[in-house]
Design a protein around this nucleic acid. Structure first.
Length: 477
RNA sequence: GGCGGCUUGGCCAAGUGGUAAGGCGACGGCCUGCAAAGCCGUUAUUCUCCGGUUCAAAUCCGGAAGCCGCCUCCA
């Protein structure tokens, strides 16, 4: 089955056919680095990281570009508030972003250009627009893009410029030819960062950097452009206008937009004060749980962050790791490139517009099937069965490389979880081992009331005991 | 006001016109001293509602209701 991609430009799923055979050019809008990243940033980054991994799995030579917007009104505002230089602020948040994304097991893109390092290209791009009468320079130093010069304006977001002109929410600016015209270059006020340009000292507008940088790294036309849904208008609409006005041809073949993360069914917003930062989430949940949570819904649907949904994801992850551990204990090894039925189901889901939610469903189905097979033989597996189970094991390992989750050693995973639980609750492991030993003695002497008393004692600390053939194990619930 | 989206069991959620994946929870069973974990079974004759197309609709078309997003910085 071939890959199908939902294209915002046409509002439907389409067969993916790259512009150049065997190659994929992909540009995703990265953060404006003026503040700590929130769970919504994490979703966008994780979603496109998974898409990037899937393209590579399909054998494409992928050039993946994700920019940093490091010149912007919000950065300047923060600089004025804190007295720190803009460059200090942006460097701080770029570092923070990298650390957090590394923790979430996000691969680094091929290129991570910064707007400030491409001012020359941005100025050249603006000059090309002016030369083609697509943009104009006004007194005071502003350069605007002229909407009326681009007749296809609105094709991505399905907006009609005439309707928008009639709307009341557009600020009227005397200097603009049309109220919809947007800024390409703005003059610097005293104290603001600036660069020399043919239009005086100033800095680029927001939209132009992506047109200029995508051109530098991917050329006039490329395959995939992504970002959050909110960027469809005006940001991506304006990018299309800029790039197609200059080069004439189609800027981007497939536009991909991810949905939002809600917090307890509400949109994250400053007024609600519910911005949930990645570092806050990491304080409570392991990076894998976060990543798995972000992939547990289809990327275009909204996803609701709540304690319940995170707890459920965490339990699901435990289930998968328990299964892996069980397979390892009976001798399964990742031993080659052979793929099984699970991989086929997984591929089918991923090829259907990167349906990671469905793909995870196929993993759980396999866990259930595999557990049943092992149960039926009471862990005394023969060679034939081992072969089948090994296929499951191989497939799950291969899948973990695409989804970027459950790729730890299960023993390490459970140990880390234990360690964290002990740290959080200030528990001494030897204390617990001691109680477990006391309970074992009590059970041996058929003193079950004492045994149950100890179990209740531990349960109060969120510790669950599991009596197995090789003794008693404990874990945090 | 303009544009777009969503509505599937107690909750979350997939769903490719062919007879409702999966997870969590609940209940019953196997296992266990009792549990836990795992497994098995039961939990939607039906997909917000009303029409239509079709041999066949959760899926396509039309209409209604509710919710949400974008149009202002936003992933």
């Amino acid at each position: 089955m071939s890959l199908k991609v939902y294209n915002t430009l046409h509002g439907k799923k389409e067969d993916f056919i790259p512009i150049k055979e065997g190659k994929v050019g992909m540009y995703v809008c990265g953060p404006t680095v003026y503040d700590t990243s929130h769970i919504g940033h994490a979703r966008s980054v994780v979603v496109f990281d998974t898409i990037f991994r899937w393209f590579r799995q399909l054998g494409y030579d992928v050039t993946y570009v994700r920019n940093f917007t490091d010149v912007d009104d919000k950065i300047i505002k923060k600089s004025n508030q804190t007295g720190q230089d803009c460059a200090v602020i942006t460097e701080k948040y770029i570092n923070e972003f990298h650390i957090e994304m590394d923790v979430l097991n996000v691969l680094r893109p091929s290129f991570e250009p910064k707007a400030t390092e491409h001012i020359r290209h941005i100025i050249d791009f603006i000059q090309m627009l002016i030369n083609k009468d697509k943009a104009y320079h006004v007194d005071g130093g502003d350069v605007y893009f002229s909407i009326d010069s681009f007749k296809e304006y609105g094709k991505l977001s399905g907006r009609n410029p005439d309707d928008m002109r009639a709307g009341a929410r557009i600020a009227v600016d005397e200097k603009k030819k049309s109220p919809l015209d947007f800024t390409l270059w703005k003059p610097a006020k005293p104290g603001e960062p600036f660069w020399e340009s043919p239009w005086g000292k100033g800095r680029p507008g927001w939209h132009i950097e992506c047109s200029a940088m995508s051109y530098e790294y991917l050329g006039e036309s490329f395959d995939i452009h992504g970002g959050g849904k909110d960027l469809i208008f005006p940001h991506h609409e304006n990018e299309i206008a800029q790039s197609e006005a200059v080069f004439g041809g189609q800027f981007v073949k497939y536009w991909i937009h991810n949905g939002f993360v809600d917090i307890n069914n509400e949109k994250m917003s400053k007024s609600l004060g519910n911005f949930t930062m990645i570092k806050e989430v990491l304080a409570t949940y392991s990076p894998e749980v976060i990543r798995m949570f972000l992939l547990s819904n289809h990327y275009r649907s909204p996803i609701d962050y709540s304690e319940d949904s995170m707890r459920e994801t965490s339990m699901g992850l435990d289930r998968i790791y328990s299964f892996l551990e069980r397979l390892e204990n009976i001798g399964c090894k990742a031993d080659g490139t052979q793929k099984g039925e699970l991989w086929d189901d997984f591929s089918f889901a991923m090829n259907d517009d990167f349906n990671s939610a469905k793909a995870l469903g196929s993993v759980f189905e396999a866990v259930k099937k595999g557990n049943r097979l092992v149960d039926d033989t009471h862990d005394n597996t023969d060679e034939g069965l081992l072969e089948i189970l090994n296929l499951f094991y191989n497939d799950i390992k291969a899948i973990s490389n695409i989804l970027g989750i459950f790729l730890l050693d299960p023993q390490f995973y459970f140990k880390a979880k234990k360690d964290k639980g002990m740290e959080d609750m200030a528990i001494d492991p030897s204390e617990i081992e001691d109680l477990i030993q006391q309970r074992a003695d009590a059970r041996k002497n058929k003193n079950f009331s004492r045994a149950d008393e100890i179990r209740d004692l531990l349960a109060a600390k969120n510790i669950v005991l599991e009596d197995g053939q090789q003794g008693t194990f404990w874990r945090f619930e």
